[in-house]
């Protein structure tokens, strides 16, 4: 399985990462080896396996519980004002 530059760039986009050149080379190399092994899974047949019945989970009752204090919600935000999180302008 060839992990070329185009694929790495695409995966960087999906993953919201910028890899350094070094990282790109290393990761591409590692991925090739790892994916080779993973490709062996195709040796396993594809017959549908009967799904074991799940235990019926209890759903949550529709009763209001107190929300958190706003200060706590915002506490760990790197940038905020009194009321909201701040991000750079979102392009429409």
């Amino acid at each position: 399985m060839l992990i070329d530059e185009k694929l790495i760039a695409y995966l960087e986009d999906l993953s919201y990462l910028y890899l350094t050149d070094n990282e790109k080379i290393r990761i591409a190399g590692d991925m090739e080896k790892i994916l080779e092994g993973m490709a062996r899974l195709s040796e396993l047949g594809t017959d549908d396996i009967p799904v074991k019945p799940q235990c019926i989970n209890e759903l949550r009752k529709d009763t209001v519980t107190p929300s958190f204090d706003r200060n706590l919600i915002l506490r760990n935000a790197p940038e905020k004002n009194n009321e909201m999180f701040i991000s750079p302008k979102v392009q429409e």
Binding site: D62, V64, S67, F68, R70, I73, L74, E83, M84
Partner: peptide, 20 residues
């Protein structure tokens, strides 16, 4: 309440006051 938590779905509240 909301779909995955017990916060109220009330409309028009002050920002970030119906959050967990």
């Amino acid at each position: 309440t909301k779909i995955f938590c017990g916060c109220s779905t009330e409309f028009g509240a002050e920002p970030n006051t119906l959050v967990c």
